[in-house]
Design a protein around this nucleic acid. Sequence first.
DNA 1: CCTTCCGCTTGCGATTTGCAACCGCTCGTC
DNA 2: GACGAGCGGTTGCAAATCGCAAGCGGAAGG
Lengths: 165, 165
Amino acid sequence: MGEANEPRSECPINAAIEVFGDRWSLIVLRDIVFGDRRYFRELQANSIEGIASNILADRLKRLVKSGLLTREDTRAGQRARYSLTEPAIQLVPVFAQLGSWGLRHRPTSSALKARAVLLEQGGPALWQEFMDELRREHLDSKLPARSPSVRERLNAAYLTATNSS
Amino acid sequence: MGEANEPRSECPINAAIEVFGDRWSLIVLRDIVFGDRRYFRELQANSIEGIASNILADRLKRLVKSGLLTREDTRAGQRARYSLTEPAIQLVPVFAQLGSWGLRHRPTSSALKARAVLLEQGGPALWQEFMDELRREHLDSKLPARSPSVRERLNAAYLTATNSS
DNA sequence: CCTTCCGCTTGCGATTTGCAACCGCTCGTC
DNA sequence: GACGAGCGGTTGCAAATCGCAAGCGGAAGG
């Protein structure tokens, strides 16, 4: 995928596709957003789709370059933490719609389905709450934390579905 | 992109990405949905991103195979019309969210921006109306047509923005 | 010093992309 | 009944990208 070349068009939908329209970018972001993975090996080892390390390295680089992630600059050999930026946090509604669509029109496991269902039922209000939560964790906003967090609720739904199936 | 191989995971978001997570599938669908293009050469010639004919042929084939499009079976040398299926029509909310995101976080032309703005302001109610309109045009539902259609309104917004800029 | 963990990088074959040119077919016209 | 325009593609080919496996240099702990 070309990097520094000019956009194919100025259509907003195309602009979005040019940033994360490939088979891995959204997967990486999904694992950071919903899985709370912040480190390279965490992202690679726990990936249910099995991302290769060179692909992950490339996507992280590109997402940083395009402003969706930031990387704490650490010396080599040390844990480097990735954080979501505001544009990436605002992908939550996109994820919600993608999940709703996949849920309805593709075969999915009942456990992984549970999160998408909850996210759909919660609607925009829940998405906003989740985005605020992400801002607290990834940006240095000093907003107070609430409990239980939305992610905890999403994961609880996942675990419940796992045990009951 | 492998075709007949099994899915990487059963996550609803991944399932969606496996169907249209590449640089061209959603562009083709966007032009059918918002641009009302139904024929091969129409899609190729009017493409603002400049899709190549072999890529377009491949994507149309794959979208038919995955159940997002249907193709009228005609003899060779005759116009073959493509139609959206119900799953494809239900991508409207996905397009709306992608457009809203691109609008906010990427540089886009003011003319093409106008449609995304209108789609965002209309909200889920407008999306539903548009989806009903698409069902009337692409499925053989005998629902009565309304006017002005949502697409007409979206295109009017585009033209207004073009002339005023 | 040795092992472990860290974020990657490298090599390499297989696949996919994208550009041009071209193809067989049908239909309307002359 | 030959012709040209329009139809949906196909083919060849070079370049880029993907994806697997192995390895690498630095840091931290024992």
